[in-house]
Simulated scan of single mutants.
Amino acid sequence: MNKLLCTTENRALNEIVAQLGDKKSPKRRSAAKKLRKLKDVDAGPHLLAALEAELKDVRTWETQYQMIMAIGECGYKPALPFINKLAKQDFEATMVYVAIGDAIVRLSIEKERDAAPIFKLLDTGNEMLIDGALRAMAMLKMVPSDSHIEKIINYVAARELNQGIHFWVVAAAPGWSGAKVEEYLDYCAKSPREEITSAVALARKNKYKKWSPL
């Protein structure tokens, strides 16, 4: 039975991987989305090869975004040097940077509390890379050390309450504790953005929500 299941799963994976080579970008994008959900590291080499080809056409940035996200969520670490190079390139569609930041964090962390990749991206000053990094932190339910949490909060607390950068930090906060965290949540509770105040309410209850980002 296990062998049959494994064969069926392999066949399904192969079919999706084959779709990465479709002539139509929406089909390739659909395949990347499916591979994001599967989170199968075996899809990594195929996704990386598909991404390298996809990057030749600036018009297909949405597909590029999904392929980068899939590489990150599949945990294909050999792609990290390539993704790091992409972070330094110019993209007209800045949403691509969000996927890059997300993937870099996922592929760089060595342990659950490892916030070092996040700080490297904070240092770039690229708001979209930073947004992706903070989003990965929230999606992975990371609980950095107290000193690292304080540094992250200090970085975003200087921003105005209507800025979206607060959202993913608050979304990551249900597993965090301490006076600094409570102070930051009190600050964000005054935000005019409903998604931020809703995330604050969850954080105060120590409840994570299953977010579904693009």
Rank of each mutant, 00 (worst) to 15 (best):
V58C: 06
I165E: 01
N2T: 14
L161V: 13
L38Q: 14
R106V: 10
N126D: 08
G164L: 14
A50E: 03
G101C: 08
D102G: 06
E15Y: 05
L20R: 03
I130V: 14
I153S: 03
W176I: 01
E52I: 14
E195H: 15
D40I: 10
L5W: 12
L185T: 07
V170H: 06
M69R: 14
S25I: 11
A158S: 10
K77S: 01
R113C: 09
P45N: 08
A179F: 00
P192L: 00
W168Q: 04
D131W: 15
I165Q: 02
T197R: 13
D22K: 13
N162G: 09
F82T: 15
I149V: 15
I130A: 09
Y184N: 08
S145A: 15
V169W: 02
K210C: 11
K37W: 01
A158E: 14
I104L: 03
C6P: 02
V170T: 07
C6F: 13
R193E: 08
G164M: 10
R204Y: 02
A157D: 00
L140V: 02
A158C: 07
N206K: 15
A172C: 05
H148K: 03
M139G: 06
L107H: 05
A87K: 12
P81Y: 00
V169I: 13
I71E: 10
A31F: 11
T60E: 07
D22L: 04
Y187M: 15
P192K: 06
H166I: 09
A50N: 00
E62N: 12
Q64Y: 11
L55F: 06
Y65S: 03
I109D: 08
K111P: 12
K77W: 00
H148Y: 00
C74K: 11
E15C: 12
L140M: 15
S108C: 05
I149M: 13
T94K: 13
A70Y: 14
K23H: 09
A53P: 00
M128I: 02
E15I: 13
T60Q: 03
K205E: 09
I71H: 03
R36C: 15
L86Y: 03
S212A: 15
L20V: 06
R29Q: 12
G132S: 05
E150S: 10
P213G: 09
P213Q: 11
M67F: 05
W176D: 03
P81W: 04
L185K: 02
K39G: 09
C6I: 15
A138Y: 06
R106H: 09
K37R: 08
W176C: 05
A136T: 02
V17K: 07
E54N: 13
K33D: 00
K3C: 07
V17N: 08
M69C: 12
K190N: 12
A79T: 06
Y184R: 03
E54Y: 02
